[in-house]
C-alpha cells in the first residue's frame, strides 16, 4: 500500500504538503513534507505532485504518473526539475504510522487526487 497521485485531479492547493509537514513538525510549513506539489513551471500552467518513499519517488506529472527508483532518478538528472532536488533530501513517507494516523495527505486532499493502492 502506498500513496499514489491522480495528477489531473490536483488543483495545487498544497494542503497535502501542509498536512504532511504538520504530521512531522506539529507546525505549518512547506519544507518538511514527504509529498510535494511541483509548481515551478507556473507560467505554463504545469503542475504535479511527488511523493517520496524510502525506495522511490511517485511522480504524478500531468502527462502521466509513475514511480521512479531513487537511483534511476539521479542517473536521469533529477526528473521533476527544480523541485525534485529538495524532495530527495526530505524524510520518506511512513504512511503517517509514526503519528498513529491514517495517511493525512490523502485525508485532506479536497480533490481526491491522492489515493492509496
Amino acid at each position: 500500500m502506498r500513496v499514489k497521485v491522480k495528477p489531473l485531479e490536483c488543483t495545487g492547493c498544497a494542503l497535502c504538503e501542509l498536512a504532511c509537514g504538520y504530521h512531522r513538525d506539529e507546525a505549518f510549513s512547506m519544507i518538511s513534507s514527504s509529498v510535494m506539489l511541483y509548481r515551478a513551471e507556473e507560467k505554463k500552467g504545469y503542475m504535479g505532485v511527488i511523493v517520496k518513499t524510502a525506495e522511490d519517488l511517485f511522480i504524478g506529472k500531468p502527462e502521466g504518473a509513475a514511480a521512479m527508483k531513487l537511483g534511476e532518478l539521479q542517473k536521469e538528472g533529477a526528473s521533476g526539475g527544480a523541485s525534485a532536488k529538495p524532495i530527495l533530501v526530505r524524510e520518506a513517507c511512513d504512511m503517517c504510522e509514526s503519528a498513529g494516523l491514517e495517511p493525512q495527505c490523502v485525508a485532506i486532499c479536497p480533490q481526491k487526487a491522492l489515493y492509496l493502492e
Binding site: 495545487g12 492547493c13 498544497a14 500552467g45
Partner: peptide, 19 residues
Amino acid sequence: VHRYRSCFACPCACNTFVK
C-alpha cells in the same frame, strides 16, 4: 480550458488556466 487552479489551502479552484 486547460486546468483549474486553487489558491493556497483552498478546497475550491476558481482560477482557470486557459491555453
